[in-house]
Simulated scan of single mutants.
Amino acid sequence: MALLVVEGVSKSFGALKAVDDVSFTVEAGEIFGLAGPNGSGKSTLFNILTGIPFGPDRGRISFDGVEIHAMSGHRIARLGLARSFQRETSFESLSVWENAVLGAAYGHGSGSGDDTVAEALTFVGLDREHWGRPSNELSVYDRKALMLAAALAMQPRMLLLDEPAAGLTKPEVDAFILLVRRIAERGITIVLTEHILTFLMSLSQRLLVLNQGQILTLGLPDEVMRDPRVVEAYLGSRRHDS
């Protein structure tokens, strides 16, 4: 059963069509991957889906049968759709605990109960010795884990992860893969985008590839990455960037 349905979604910034007539569905319990070269519209699509900081210009989005394309980010989060960001965002002057409390207060569940917050922090590997520390004292990995904990404290039904492995070492990437799998095992549907293709390929059950704001292909990861159009999109982007 489709938990998320995206129909004909578009978003422009002046003459630039960042997302152009994109349609797809995400099944409940699925890990759904989103790939594409730089500038393909992946982060813009994440912004549109969560209403942070904007929705679509055109198209329809429904989450568990509720139309959300015209809703504010706060209302969408209350329905159970949470996200992380490319950078390991946190309120740096607040403690680890306080950051997770804010997530809990913003989300779908029963609020900022201590048990919810403690469980989310412990789940991502931030034990009690971290809870009173300012978040700006954490390592890059632990700040990313804190961002996940704040999202999990929202008790989401779907979690959108925007390049969660960026800036991590190889061992940290491997640890994050395991963490994402454990989140999925809890029944949380996951949509993720990532430039580290091994990360994306190891987790995704289906993979959608965007190029210049449009869907290039959608299917099983191995088949998608063998598609000559996908190879050209990535290699062409690298030639252009070099």
Rank of each mutant, 00 (worst) to 15 (best):
L126V: 12
F199M: 13
G113N: 12
M225R: 10
S237E: 12
I188F: 04
V140M: 06
S23C: 09
L160T: 02
T44Y: 07
E223A: 10
L235F: 14
D142G: 04
L16G: 01
L94I: 11
G80V: 11
G125K: 04
I61P: 13
D57W: 01
S23N: 02
E67I: 14
F91I: 15
I215K: 12
Y234F: 15
A70G: 04
L179Q: 15
A2P: 15
I188H: 01
L160Q: 04
L161R: 07
P134T: 08
E67A: 13
M154N: 01
L210R: 02
M1V: 10
G187R: 05
M225T: 02
P134L: 07
G219C: 10
R238L: 14
E7V: 03
V224M: 08
L148P: 07
L220V: 11
R206F: 03
H195R: 08
A153H: 09
I68R: 04
F176W: 03
F123L: 12
F85E: 09
S237V: 07
I188L: 01
D64R: 14
V117Y: 15
I177L: 08
L146I: 10
R226E: 11
K17T: 04
V22I: 00
P156W: 09
D20L: 06
R182C: 10
F54S: 05
A28Y: 00
L160D: 07
A104N: 08
E88P: 15
M225K: 11
I196Q: 10
E172S: 05
S112A: 15
V140S: 03
G33R: 01
Q86A: 11
V9L: 08
V230T: 09
E163K: 05
H69M: 05
Q205T: 10
M201K: 12
E185A: 12
R60C: 05
A100K: 07
F91Q: 08
T169S: 15
T198K: 13
R75V: 08
L216K: 07
R206K: 08
G65E: 10
L16W: 00
M158R: 03
M147N: 02
L102A: 13
L235D: 07
H108E: 06
A104G: 12
I61D: 03
G109M: 11
R226N: 09
F24V: 00
V140Q: 07
P53S: 09
V9K: 04
W97G: 05
D57N: 09
S12A: 12
V140L: 09
K11G: 07
F123D: 13
L81R: 02
Q212K: 12
K170R: 08
A2H: 10
I190H: 03
V9R: 05
D115T: 14
Q155W: 01
L210W: 07
V224Q: 04
L3Q: 06
R238W: 06
L16H: 11
L121D: 02
P134W: 03
A35Q: 04
I177R: 14
G107T: 12
R58E: 06
M154A: 13
D162N: 08
I190K: 02
R186K: 15
L81G: 04
S12I: 00
E119S: 14
P156Q: 02
I52Q: 08
D174S: 07
G109S: 13
G107P: 13
I76M: 05
K170S: 00
G33L: 00
S110F: 14
R186C: 00
L34R: 05
L220I: 09
I68T: 15
T169Q: 09
H108P: 14
I31Y: 02
S93M: 15
I190D: 05
G59F: 06
